[in-house]
């Protein structure tokens, strides 16, 4: 619905415009009709700005520009007047159209079409909530939640959350699950590191990529290194290198 306000000091002219609007558009609601600067100024200060204003220029107590000069109104205005001498001033005051009286349905329709077009053009620049969400989804990288593992001639899906750690040795990457099972996987450690959610998995060194929940305790080791002890047995101790030590401790502290 379009909320409209009519500013017109002559009752007959106001009625005429109202009739035309109701006749050509079903989606317009005339919320208020006013005839003077005084009345309109007061009303605009106390009410939400309408979607559109139909405004005469010569009102009972002066020129309507005084209203728009004194009140910071964002509503677009369609000026309706019998005089063509105020066009420049009309543009200074949010004027989007200038209707010369006498009014006809065709003229009013034309100016409303312009209103629709401007509205469409301006609202395009403000993305909708849906568009924003889609954009956020796009910007936020999505991580792999399932790994595919070749077991003989079959392919088995394994959920990332079931993976306790990944271990590299002799050119082979092994997947160790929380349920103690072990598989081989074709992908490289670097690939896996980039595909799995970094808030869940951490590459502590060249050989290990470990799940947050697999860590049981961390021991200090010499020269500011750490040893990570897991709930599961590991082929060799997990030594967190000096470079990785601080990021690793920060990662453990950060919540998911």
């Amino acid at each position: 619905m379009i909320n409209a306000v009519i500013i017109e000091d002559e009752p007959k002219a106001a009625n005429e415009l109202k009739d035309i609007l109701e006749q050509i558009r079903k989606d317009i609601v005339i919320v208020k009709t006013m005839g003077s600067i005084e009345e309109a100024s007061e009303w605009f200060q106390q009410n939400d700005p309408p979607d559109i204003i139909f405004s005469d220029i010569q009102l009972s107590d002066g020129l309507s520009f005084e209203i728009y000069k004194n009140i910071d109104l964002s509503s677009p205005i369609i000026f309706c007047t019998a005089f063509d001498e105020y066009t420049l001033k009309a543009f200074e005051a949010n004027g989007i159209s200038y209707l010369l009286k006498p009014m006809t349905p065709a003229k009013v329709e034309e100016s409303l079409r312009k209103y629709d077009e401007l509205k469409a053009a301006f609202s395009k620049r403000q993305p909708s909530a849906n568009q924003l969400e889609a954009l956020i989804r796009q910007l936020r990288p999505s991580y792999q939640t399932t790994l595919l593992i070749n077991v003989r001639d079959k392919i088995m899906p394994v959920k990332a959350e079931d993976v306790a750690y990944l271990y590299y040795n002799n050119g082979v990457v092994s997947v160790y699950l929380f349920n103690q099972q072990q598989y081989f996987i074709q992908e490289t450690m670097d690939d896996l590191e980039s595909k799995l959610n970094p808030s869940t998995f951490f590459r502590v060194n060249r050989q290990y990529l470990i799940h947050r929940n697999s860590i049981q305790e961390i021991e200090r080791y010499f020269s500011r290194k750490f040893i990570a002890k897991l709930f599961l047995k590991t082929p060799e101790p997990i030594i967190v290198s000096k470079i990785k030590a601080t990021p690793f401790m920060n990662w453990i502290k950060e919540s998911i």
């Binding site: 600067i37 010569q58 009972s60 002066g62 020129l63 520009f65 005084e66 005089f83 001498e85």
Partner: peptide, 8 residues
């Protein structure tokens, strides 16, 4: 009196 007068 009106606040503002027509131009003419």
């Amino acid at each position: 009196l009106k606040h503002s007068l027509p131009n003419d």
